[in-house]
């Protein structure tokens, strides 16, 4: 079961072998380089528009760390989302799971158990809700869109119920300090993001779990015939997404020193968008963790660029929308298809 598709069509008649660079195997690398290009372009725009800020080296260093820190919680959630999408599903409930996990972890009763109790609660709630999603989808045979849409509404409802619609302030200094702690000058949140991304990369690319995810997403029937327990694997994927939400909930709770039912609003859209512009195929079977990380960083950098220029968030949202559309268009007309298109235009 391999990610790669059939060998690409030779660019010119007579050319028998395609170089690695033009081949399909390097497609994710090329796309990631494209995203790096976008990031560089955004930084250049920032430097041109605000030269006095970019002239200060310590400000620039701090700015990079701020962008990474702002990307940390949503980045962790996006890793889980990327697995679900590669596995052929979608999880619309991630924002709601974060809210439920955050609220549950900051009730007065949970807080009385200390930081350990709060972290355990957030992760257990995340995994638990993810398991319910997975069971509904694989054994209840609900379409992922419907099951997680229902969970999105229900989990936010439960969060509002538990919190009594109030903002629950975390009085736990260990939790609150996660967001302000720096190790070797780098925020702890950035280390957590790096650890989750690294773990996600290894899980996807170096384990049977990852291979199975790609197989299940690419062609579930073939995967089943190949002996993979597709249902159980699907349950695990949603539980994994829930786990990431639980970790994200702790990070976000620490940053805001509080939790409430409306927190992490619309994070599902940001996570899906980041995964998609990172090259994850919405129909499943293909995607990369590194690409998703770059997707999150692109969004985080755009927000930063608009902030330092004091531009309105309305325009920012339009630009974000434009980038998503552009990324999906590129996904449809990938390098190969483009060259085909051009050769067709030339000959026809």
């Amino acid at each position: 079961m391999s990610v790669t598709e059939a060998p690409p069509v030779a660019k010119h008649p007579g050319e028998t072998k395609t170089s690695w660079w033009k081949g399909d195997r390097s497609e994710p690398v090329r796309r990631n380089l494209g995203l790096v290009g976008v990031l560089v372009a955004l930084v250049v725009i920032g430097a041109v528009t605000r030269p006095e800020l970019y002239g200060d080296a310590s400000w620039v260093q701090n700015n990079v760390l701020t962008i990474l820190q702002q990307a940390s919680a949503i980045g962790v959630i996006t890793v889980g989302m990327t697995f679900v999408i590669i596995g052929g599903g979608i999880d619309l409930s991630v924002g709601a799971i974060v809210a439920l996990a955050g609220v549950w972890a900051t009730t007065l009763a949970t807080q009385s158990y200390g930081a350990g109790g709060m972290i355990f609660t957030a992760i257990a709630v995340g995994v638990g809700v993810g398991l319910v999603n997975g069971l509904l989808i694989s054994y209840g045979r609900l379409v992922p869109f419907i099951a997680t849409l229902a969970m999105m509404v229900a989990a936010r409802g439960l969060a509002a119920q538990i919190s009594g619609k109030q903002t629950q302030v975390s009085a736990n200094s260990v939790i609150n300090d996660i967001a302000s702690t720096r190790v070797l000058g780098i925020p702890l949140l950035v280390y957590i993001l790096a650890a989750v991304v690294a773990a996600g990369w290894v899980l996807l690319n170096r384990t049977t779990f990852g291979r199975r995810t790609v197989a299940v997403g690419g062609n579930p029937e073939a995967a089943r015939l190949a002996g993979i327990n597709v249902r159980r694997h699907t349950v695990l994927l949603y539980a994994l997404s829930g786990l990431c939400c639980g970790i994200g909930a702790i990070m976000l709770t620490s940053q805001a020193t509080s939790a409430q039912a409306a927190m992490a609003n619309l994070y599902e859209l940001d996570a899906i968008a980041a995964a998609i512009i990172g090259g994850t195929l919405l129909s499943g079977g293909r995607g990369t963790i590194i690409g998703a990380l770059f997707g999150v960083l692109v969004f985080s950098t755009i927000t930063n660029l608009f902030a330092i220029n004091n531009l309105s968030t309305e325009v920012q949202n339009m630009v974000k929308g434009g980038i998503i559309v552009a990324a999906v268009l590129i996904q449809q007309f990938r390098y190969k298809s483009l060259t085909n298109l051009f050769s067709r235009v030339k000959t026809g």
Binding site: L53, D56, W59, N62, N63, T66, Q69, Q70, T167, L252, Q255, A256, T257, S258, A259, Q260, A262, M263, A264, N265, T303, N304, A307, I308, N309, N310, T313
Partner: peptide, 25 residues
């Protein structure tokens, strides 16, 4: 000098304030 809207929630307030303070040294 700079205006960063949040959404009446603590997590968006944290994000907006972080952006604003980064934009204004």
């Amino acid at each position: 000098a700079n205006r960063r809207p949040a959404e009446f929630t603590a997590d968006t307030g944290q994000r907006a304030a972080t952006e604003l303070l980064q934009a204004l040294p």
